Simulated scan of single mutants.
Amino acid sequence: MLFTAELIDFKIVYSVLKAVNLSEYAILRPMEEGLKLTLEEIKCTETSVYFPCNMFSTYEIYSTEDITFKISLKVFTECLNIFGDEGNPSLKLIYEDIGGPLCLKMKHLEENIIVDCDIKTFSTEDFQSISLAHECNLNKMVVNANIFQEILYRLDNSADEVNLGLSPDPPYFTLIATGRAGESFVTISKHSEEVSVYQCQKSAQAQYLFSYLRQLLKVMNYASKISISMGETGLLGIQIVISSEEKQMYVEYYVTSLVTE
């Protein structure tokens, strides 16, 4: 036995994984602080979902070695949705041996129905677990999720690129989308009641493919806070905080820039 974890109600877990289902495969890494799921690398982006250990009713790691394995994200989410929207099913994850399957034991509490699923796992020899958080250490803003989601909807949906800027001077945070109809832009002041943290060492602007940011709109439906950070190279980090029954899970999203100023 290498890893086991139990979750009483996993509907929010299914919803978030369904929203970030941008890749065929995902890397699972049980750690002492929680379970990390990273989408297999997509060009110019990296997406990870963190499930802190306090989200689980039980969470045990029985190995001192690093545990990582790859699974089909589509199969995983389909298994989690076996009971659909009915009841509040419980989930138990079991990973017994390296190369063995990830076992899912799901129980419908009201109907007392139990479903077992074994998901094939794959080696992660080519996978390198590198945190990009340290590269986004130049500027940071924490804002309420609903306002950032509204901003993305306001911008010209036909735009291919979006320019994001953080500055110690007004207007502080800017987003400019360039599309066929011209430019559309929005700003947020660091003094806005929607902003809880604003740390800006120096002005920085970078350009990104707008499609990469729009990918996050589905996840934002479940978010309470969003942290936006930028590094010297223009690497953009977006951490989405999702609260469920006084517990929090996180989605971290990194995207490389097209142009940096």
Rank of each mutant, 00 (worst) to 15 (best):
Q239R: 15
Q239N: 14
K18C: 00
Y62H: 15
K11T: 12
S63R: 02
E245S: 13
Y222I: 00
H108M: 10
N139W: 06
A181W: 04
Y212D: 14
P171K: 11
M1H: 13
R180A: 11
Y95W: 10
F127H: 15
M55I: 15
L235Q: 12
I8T: 13
D156L: 03
I240A: 05
L138M: 13
F69H: 07
T45G: 03
A26W: 08
E161A: 01
A26L: 02
S72L: 03
I113E: 12
C200G: 11
Y25A: 15
A145R: 02
Y59F: 09
V20F: 10
Q239F: 01
M55Q: 14
E252R: 12
F56I: 05
G99E: 09
S167Y: 07
E245M: 08
I176F: 01
A19D: 11
M220T: 03
V142L: 10
V251K: 02
F51M: 10
K105V: 13
K74G: 06
N163W: 05
S23G: 15
T38E: 15
K190H: 13
L102T: 07
R29N: 12
Y14I: 00
Y172K: 03
N112E: 12
H134R: 04
T68V: 04
S158V: 00
E41S: 13
S229A: 15
Y14W: 04
L80A: 09
E32A: 09
I94E: 13
D97L: 05
K11Q: 14
S63G: 07
L93E: 05
L175W: 11
E232Q: 07
S72Y: 05
E60F: 09
N157G: 10
P89A: 11
N157W: 00
K140Y: 01
K247M: 13
I42A: 15
F185W: 14
V16T: 14
L109F: 00
R214P: 01
V259M: 12
L39Q: 07
V162F: 02
G179W: 09
E135P: 00
E96N: 11
M106V: 02
L102A: 08
G100K: 11
C117D: 01
K92T: 14
Q239H: 05
T58S: 15
I147C: 07
M55Y: 11
L164C: 07
Y254D: 08
G100D: 11
A26V: 12
A159R: 02
L35Q: 04
F3S: 07
E110F: 02
S211A: 14
N146I: 01
I242A: 05
L132M: 11
Q205I: 01
S72E: 05
I238Y: 05
R154K: 13
D9T: 08
N54H: 09
L37R: 04
V255H: 06
V186Q: 15
Y198E: 04
F122M: 12
I71R: 05
T256V: 08
I242W: 09
F69C: 08
G87N: 07
S224F: 09
N139Y: 06
L93K: 05
L164A: 04
I240T: 14
S227Q: 15
L175D: 03
I27F: 06
S48A: 14
K74D: 14
S72R: 02
E252L: 08
A5W: 08
Y153G: 00
S158L: 06
N88K: 12
T4C: 06
V219L: 03
V197G: 04
S123N: 10
